[in-house]
Simulated scan of single mutants.
Amino acid sequence: MPITLDTSLPPSLYPLAWLIGRWEGSGALATPSASSPDLRVEQTLICSAQEDGTLAWRSVIHRVDAPAPLPPTSAFARDAEESAPPADPAATGERSLLHREDGVWTVGDLLPGQDRAAAEAAPPGSPASHLSYRLDARFERRGEQAEQWQGEVRGPRVQLALPGADGQVAATRMFGYVRGTLMWLWEQPAPVEGGAPGETVLAPHLSLELHRA
């Protein structure tokens, strides 16, 4: 699906034009144990332009007592064919609030090494036509300290990382607009199976596939 640029947007939001709108969809919440099945989640996401040139982000995610979509936690590594999740006769379909978050995204300057002239000369929509911009995102959840994420937007793709107190990456989020669908993956630290005590690795936490509402 082609991206239509709303020329009434602040120019600073042109790199995020594909994200603006209301999205709804479902995905998987990873469980701590590899032997436990992932849990189904459903999300409503609203991204809107603000007068100051930033993007407002509001996300509401519910846990649903139902099987997670297949394949689980693979929004960025999907097979061309996938089967429906098996029916669970014990599932009730009951919904419970898992996560509510508000945020502000700010697009910054071009990252070093970008060739604007070459991008403008490339065919529209081709990988060569995309430029990488600095991206800052502040997320807030009630009762918790706000988080400041950093990353980049390049074409219809966003990569964000949360810096940790030790200078390492504490979590990552990746967003991609693919054939009219918004797919995103949130990774958090998880224990390394068979690793040393306290050893962790970034692993899928949430994986969702959203469509414009």
Rank of each mutant, 00 (worst) to 15 (best):
P2C: 09
I3S: 09
L5F: 10
S12F: 03
L13P: 03
Y14D: 11
P15M: 08
A17C: 10
I20E: 07
I20S: 11
L29I: 10
T31W: 00
P37Q: 04
C47G: 09
S48A: 14
T54N: 02
R58D: 14
H62M: 13
D65N: 13
A68E: 04
P69D: 10
A75P: 06
A77N: 15
A80R: 15
A80C: 13
A91W: 01
T92I: 06
T92P: 03
G93L: 03
G93S: 03
R95W: 02
R95I: 10
L97T: 14
E101G: 11
E101R: 06
W105F: 15
W105A: 15
G108T: 10
G108Y: 00
Q114Y: 03
A117N: 08
A118W: 06
A119E: 04
A119G: 08
A121S: 04
P123A: 09
P124E: 08
S126V: 13
A128S: 10
L131W: 03
S132W: 11
L135E: 03
D136L: 14
D136Y: 05
R141L: 05
A146R: 06
G151S: 05
E152Y: 08
G155W: 03
P156H: 11
P156T: 12
A161G: 09
D166G: 07
D166M: 11
R173S: 12
F175K: 01
F175T: 06
R179Y: 09
G180W: 02
M183I: 13
W186D: 14
A190F: 00
G194K: 01
A196V: 03
E199R: 00
E199G: 01
E199K: 01
L202A: 04
A203P: 01
L210D: 05
H211L: 15
